[in-house]
Amino acid sequence: MSDKIIIPCPHCGQLNRLPAERRGGGRCGSCGQALFTGHPVALTTAAFDRQIGSDDLPVLVDFWAGWCGPCRAMAPAFEAAAAALEPLVRLAKVDTEAEPQLAARFQIRSIPTLILFRGGREIARQSGALSGGQIRAFVEQHAASAAR
């Protein structure tokens, strides 16, 4: 295992190399903002691949839409899960209305849908609204698959 990890900045997308022991902290070398905020990152099509491509950081993506009642109901639980799971897993959100290319690319047929990625590969998928505890359990259940 390397003593350095690569973390994409959630603000500017710059890849940052950190000592493994500093995984939970650090600031982006490009924009100076915190690498972990404890909040989900809103992803656009342009930023998506850079954020999910890291081998060192699994990313749980919530595919959602503003008009979706279950999506809105799950949003506070997803927010709380981000605070609980970072820096081991980054949580991100994709608005399927604003980013239909991503919804099509990942064949999102129902929302909310959660997909866990590692190194750009889909590790696990779950459709339907979950509680905060269920979101954490989903990540923990599939963490072994996400760890290389």
Rank of each mutant, 00 (worst) to 15 (best):
G53F: 15
G53D: 12
S54P: 09
S54Y: 11
S54T: 08
D55H: 15
D55K: 15
D55I: 06
D55C: 01
D56L: 11
D56C: 12
D56M: 03
D56V: 05
D56S: 13
L57T: 14
L57D: 06
P58I: 09
P58N: 06
P58S: 11
P58K: 06
P58F: 10
P58D: 05
V59Q: 13
V59M: 14
V59A: 15
V59H: 12
V59N: 06
V59W: 12
V59L: 11
L60I: 10
L60K: 12
L60P: 11
V61A: 14
V61N: 13
D62E: 15
D62P: 04
D62T: 00
F63A: 09
F63H: 12
F63V: 10
F63K: 08
W64C: 04
W64E: 12
W64K: 10
A65T: 02
A65G: 05
A65C: 08
G66N: 06
G66S: 13
G66P: 04
W67N: 01
C68D: 04
G69N: 09
G69P: 07
G69R: 15
P70R: 11
P70W: 06
P70N: 07
P70E: 10
A73K: 13
A73P: 07
M74H: 01
M74T: 02
M74D: 01
A75D: 11
P76E: 11
P76I: 11
A77W: 00
F78C: 06
F78K: 04
F78Y: 13
E79T: 15
A80H: 08
A81Y: 11
A81L: 09
A82N: 04
A82H: 12
A82S: 15
A82E: 11
A82C: 03
A82F: 06
A82R: 03
A83M: 01
A83N: 06
A83I: 03
A84Q: 14
L85F: 12
L85N: 12
L85R: 05
E86C: 07
E86P: 02
E86M: 09
P87G: 07
P87A: 05
L88W: 12
L88D: 15
V89C: 10
R90V: 02
R90P: 09
L91C: 04
L91P: 06
L91V: 07
L91R: 05
A92G: 14
A92Y: 06
K93Y: 04
K93S: 13
K93Q: 14
V94D: 05
V94Y: 01
D95Q: 10
D95H: 00
D95N: 14
D95L: 07
T96E: 03
T96K: 00
E97F: 00
E97T: 02
A98S: 13
A98T: 09
A98C: 12
E99V: 09
P100L: 00
P100N: 00
Q101S: 13
Q101W: 04
L102D: 02
L102E: 12
A104E: 11
A104F: 05
R105K: 14
R105Y: 00
F106M: 08
F106I: 03
Q107D: 14
Q107L: 08
I108Y: 03
R109F: 08
R109T: 09
R109V: 05
S110K: 00
S110V: 01
S110Y: 02
I111A: 10
I111R: 00
P112T: 07
P112M: 02
P112R: 05
P112N: 09
P112Y: 09
P112A: 03
